[in-house]
Design a protein around this nucleic acid. Structure first.
Lengths: 335, 335
DNA sequence: CTGAAAGCGCTTACAG
DNA sequence: CTGAAAGCGCTTACAG
């Protein structure tokens, strides 16, 4: 591989001048710049990222710390990773995958090894142990997820509370006074899944504010459990005429469960849901819904992180991405 | 951050000695080594990966080049990425995500920038353009996928042909003489998906060798299309008593399609399938099947790539991972 | 067994 | 506007 020295020799200038051209500094005569560029092309030179990193103390790479939670390990992860890599590239950064089972250790060693300029923590939960080494060191980072205490770390997430309000309002506006709230199983809330907690709290509050009753059905994620739980609820006497769903497994099965018991949407039941964009893509779900916005969330995360790398001492920010309602005619006034 | 110089000073030795300890070289007196280790711990020193990379001309990172194919962008991708990162870490490597839409450009710039020691190409198709810059430069790489012409590049994949034979044999052994082969849509084969091509060819050959007739039903991936295609086939007069499925979308829907038309497995239909491990995890599919083996495939890929980095001139190897049959009592003799 | 020196490929003041 | 020099934090022959 050609080095900057080879280019300098070829162009008949010094290495500093080549460097100036490389970094787009002004104050290089057009004629000189032209010679350097020709030499670069001729030798198909490309700067050695590692050497530049050593000289500038900037690696221009971001680490993404994936968190494992067997039950949640979802199809959405790839979407986030790819979107993150794309967003990073737009800002001139590469992305390194950090997947140690022990996320806290992954964070510590990433900081210590200085291979990255900043960290993105995916799928952050309440009291996430990965926050500790970051809070302690002040290393640039951004959380995806919105725990109550962000420990002074920048954080971004979809505004799940606003999503819940949009959906509840949509049901209330056509006259529903009761809805079945098909939600995640209790242990997910207990495990501190911030999005689940925020959605549920806002749904309850908004429903109560609008004089609406929510009947909650927690739903485990196994296909059989989901199917029987849904079937039972749908066949129940006095079941509400509307379903508010926040559970990816349940919403994926819902069309089949409805079909099983011969109920039509929206004639027999109104359905609204908040689910991941990836799920919508895979299943073409026919429900009016709020979808996660992985691109927007991740784009904001990269923006905050890059800013944080440049200005480590500014005050931490928390940003919620506004959700929007995708209408799909699955809601009608109650019978 | 502490540098190797700080450690040397603290321990009262030279930087070379610290380096020798760091790299586990023998010929350091235990006493000296102890002093150095104490200093490292005291200063919580950690070697700067970039500086080491510059000095050794080894980045100790692998690039993974994700390929986009809208229709295929599958839940399995995350599994491969995480497994890859884990396998790489075991060998002392990190993983960098390369996601440019233009995979060929991604490969070129990864090679030019020297940020990685080797490349893993995910989901390689026939005549994959990403192979070109690798073949031209001899840069260490490994294909996941097995095109007919690997261009001299190491390659690994599940042995889809062997998987097809296992499944066909399993049906033939209990006496099936006819089976519906629910497969991918034609355009996937046309696009050069090597796994689909190899599976189909082997299935046909094995069936014909065992005197079995395969009636092929290509199945598009949209949920509605899948459902109606399956429903139609299941209700067809004279439909075979067995289904051989190689289509993730179809197999995910199959339990519902069977339920729709009131057919039981294996009493009314025998079913065998080859599908991704991720799908099996998400849906707990009740069929005897061969599943993709992402961990084994990726582990082998890393092994080959690391070896290739160390020995660039050895002859290229192609490795097929043996599949195994997971029995789930979905096969019975024909009625 | 340990240390001094050179070098990896860049960037960045600082002269001129 | 351009070049010479020092330095980023390591490793690796080479002396001793």
């Amino acid at each position: 591989m050609a080095t900057i020295g080879d280019v300098a020799r070829e162009a008949g200038v010094s290495r500093s001048t080549v460097s100036a051209v490389l970094n787009g500094r002004k104050l290089v005569l057009p004629e000189t710049r032209g010679r350097v560029e020709a030499a670069i092309a001729k030798l198909s030179f490309s700067v050695n990222a590692g050497a530049r990193a050593l000289a500038t103390a900037r690696t221009m790479t971001l680490g993404v710390v994936v968190r494992f939670h067997e039950a949640e390990f979802s199809p959405a992860l790839a979407t986030y990773l790819v979107a993150l890599s794309d967003a990073a590239r737009e800002s001139g950064y590469s992305v390194m995958l950090l997947t140690e089972a022990d996320g806290e250790a992954a964070v510590r060693s990433a900081i210590a090894g200085r291979r990255v300029d900043g960290l993105v923590l995916l799928n952050v939960v309440e009291d996430d142990p990965r926050m500790e080494p970051i809070a302690a060191s002040g290393f640039p980072a951004v959380l995806i997820g919105m725990p109550q205490d962000t420990r002074g770390i920048d954080a971004v997430d979809l505004d799940f509370a606003a999503g819940a309000r949009l959906l509840v309002d949509h049901l209330a506006e056509v006259g529903h006074r009761r809805a079945t709230f098909v939600r995640w199983p209790d242990d997910l809330y207990a495990a501190g899944s911030t999005y689940a907690i925020r959605f549920a709290a806002a749904a309850r509050e908004q429903a109560s504010g609008r004089g609406m009753t929510l009947e909650e059905v927690p739903c485990a994620v196994g296909p059989e459990q989901v199917r029987s739980a849904l079937g039972e609820e749908l066949l129940r006497r006095e079941a509400p005429g509307a379903l508010l769903v926040h559970n990816d497994a349940a919403v994926a099965m819902l069309p089949f469960a409805l079909h099983d018991v011969g109920l039509r949407v929206p004639a027999d039941r109104s359905v609204v849901s908040l689910h991941s964009a990836e799920l919508a893509r895979l299943y073409a779900l026919p429900f009016t819904s709020v979808e996660s916005e992985p691109e927007a969330v991740v784009h904001t995360a990269v923006e905050l992180l890059v800013r944080r790398i440049d200005a480590p001492d500014e005050v931490p920010v928390a940003r919620l991405v506004a959700p929007h309602l995708e209408r799909r005619d699955s809601v009608a006034p109650p019978a």
